[in-house]
Write a protein that binds this DNA or RNA. Sequence first.
DNA 1: TTTTGAGTTGTTCGA
DNA 2: GTCGAACAACTCAAA
Length: 480
Amino acid sequence: MDDNPAVEAACATGQPVIFLFIWAPEEEGEWSPGGATRWWLHHSLSRLAETLEARGNRLLIRRGPSAATLDGVIAETGASVVFWNRRYEPLAVARDAGIKSGLRQRGLRVESFNAGLLREPWEVATKTGGPYQVFTPYWRACMGMSEPSRPWVAPTRFAAPHPWPIGVEIGSLGLLPRIGWDEGFRGEWTPGSDGAVGLLSTFVAGPWRDYKTNRDRPDLLGTSRLSPHLHFGEIGPRQIWWAVKERAGQLGLAEAEWRSSTYLTEVGWREFAYHLMFHFPRTPTEPLRDEFSRFPWREETELLKRWSEGRTGVPLVDAGMRQLWRTGWMHNRVRMVVASYLVKNLMVPWQSGARWFWDTLVDADLASNTLGWQWTAGCGADAAPYFRVFNPVSQGEKFDPNGEYVRRWVPELGRLELPWIHRPWEAPSEVLRGAGVSLGRDYPEPLVSLVISRERTLEAYARMRAGRPVEGAEKPVIDG
DNA sequence: TTTTGAGTTGTTCGA
DNA sequence: GTCGAACAACTCAAA
């Protein structure tokens, strides 16, 4: 609710304000919201409606094509001013530009605003005027610009229209899943601005100081978990910036110290993701580096299925995939591990993983999801070097040192001790028996050998870079 | 135009 | 067990 420039501008007109939400998922093309984000949206809209009612107004919900639906509301109410906060997905940019110019031609006052980013994607440019493709100079350039403005605080009353336009009920949008898949979401999340503000203040009061080390620990609560709130605009990066700044002031930290803190740098990566999506709009589906279109990906639905269901036989990977399915979220460190495993051990196209994430993450965000997957596959801007293949066993031993994360999400391994918790296939048979685990019955044998599949991928990358033709028949998938 | 320095997140191998 | 080097050039950004 706070730090919302469109609402701020609307209030400044002194006129009654109509808060309009238009549901038009077909306009998002192949990126219409997935199941988990629909769940979030339902609850986010409900909270927003409650908040507006408490402040003397309402949330008007309509469905149908955006332009025509908006025209309808304008005709019914006689509105002469239209404000919104910008979106940056390629289709949304094109649509909103069309709506803006159409309304302006008809004499309406139309403005769009930046609510979601510290910097607009087109504001940041290299000396030659082009977009950045490397994070560090990009972020340095951002930090050299003026400080983000202080967040606006919304009033406790909004002037209401008379009469009220008629809308549809939130429930009629059909956003909630038909099967009870979202049970695990409820205890985990509080969609809405209040939940976001609460998370932010808890985070800066405590975990923020140890973020640099604890952020990599999926067994701890070391991150802010604000990503879904940010995606839905329930809170914005300017609020984060100022919350960090205020906390740093309390602690007496030097300006340079908090500005370069790892947490704000992560906010910077989110900014960079939007910068890239805006300037390279094909990248949600296509590799930025086009030599990667020659890579011998395996379009194997069985491998993808086993990965999606968390049945690869690699504990850290399976734990992550099950956390995702149950809670709509996965720890960032584990996202990198499962993505690396899918792309570099199973050789399944990164786009397939991106689509599964799109459907199951409550924070599914086209810019961040695209950057993350292209980074892992090595085909994006400033991507991981091709030879960097995560080893899910060493990652587990390093970042889930007690195996608690794995045991929480893979309960059939609950009685397995270190070090076998991260590599059950190497455990002596009496250890497995003692833990009540029979590989292949209670928990899968590994889908592939980590060593062999790694070598196979490195060879494929080497061939691709050399521009050599890709062999048609590959070795069998199930090996080792 | 050319040159130069630098570049999120790792793993493996051998001393 | 620990440490440094190799992995592979390549592209970007700026001087």
